[in-house]
Amino acid sequence: MAETLVKKFVVTRFDPDKDEAPRTESYEVPCHPDWKVLDALNHIKDEIDGSLAHRWSCRMSVCGSCGMNVNGQPTLTCKKAVSDLPDTVEVTPLANFPVVRDLVVELDGFMEKLKSVKPWIIRAKEKAVEEGPMRQSQAELEEFKQFSMCINCMLCYAACPVVANEPEFLGPAAIALGHRYSVDSRDEGAAERNEIFRGEGTVFACSYANECSEVCPKHVDPAAAVNQAKFNAVIDWAAGLVLPRGGKE
């Protein structure tokens, strides 16, 4: 019989209609040793306090819904084992995001940033289906593959000190996604995205904290993407001074 771990969960609660500001509530949860933090939260919701609100879906670290700060660290709660945590576990909503309710944060700001980098294949002339798939070598695929792994969990935004201070900054995931497309051999839109990267959301706001890559549960390494994007943005700008537009790579 597996030994139950009893942990105290201190969870942020906030109902804008009732609470002036977020407060906390504590719950004693008898945890199965195989549980993740999410299982404990669901136990609270099912058995102790049905009014707790949190987002989750796949429970297998791929949908990106369940990001929260656990003991100060941005964490995917479906991935973090309860047995790896001390007896008291603090669960707060993702840092750097406005809080809508309990552990639920406002996501539309992120959705806007994501859309603004034009995360789609840009080509001068669309390819016809009859022509079949475009050719791409495995090596070309490897160039951007890592950056395409982002599940939009936003842990990187919760970790980034620049996101905390500069609302215009595009942020790690959005830049990584834009960069993923610019580097994709099938895409022809790098110049357009480089202009966006040099614009208001400027990639140059990144000051090398590397926290985004430290917390990323999918090993996307957004810090690499952001700094590669800086490089490309500069080369593109310099080339633009020397060559007329249209003479790009």
Binding site: F14, P16, A21, P22, N69, G72, Q73, P74, T92, P93, A95, N96, F97, P98, V99, V100, R101, E106, A158, A159, C160, P161, A164, E211
Partner: peptide, 11 residues
């Protein structure tokens, strides 16, 4: 709906 202000990374 009214939101609570974003919090800095705790650490």
């Amino acid at each position: 709906t009214r939101t609570a202000p974003p919090q800095r990374p705790p650490q």
